[in-house]
Amino acid sequence: MSDAPISPAPASPANALTLDYLPIGQSACVVAVDWARLDADEGRRLRALGIDVGAVVSVAHRGVFGGSDPLAVSVGRMTVALRRAHARVMRVELAR
């Protein structure tokens, strides 16, 4: 894999990469999710689709017309569309 530069949220510490900033095509493991910042039903739906702590994810597509919303996230053999607001509460660590 190439050493693609990662641009975390400016205000975040360098090691706290969130899913919304994960470069396209880069695999990462979800290490923490702040479920309290999401609607309870939405959290349940995300978990039902396998997006939870421990899941290996990558961003397949992001945005339309130059925007950064929504995201198409690959998890296992599925692709799940979600919004940046959901990705923002998920801390990920790059897979090696």
Partner: peptide
């Protein structure tokens, strides 16, 4: 505003 979560 509500969210958008959907399997493709």
């Amino acid at each position: 505003a509500s969210g958008f979560i959907m399997e493709m």
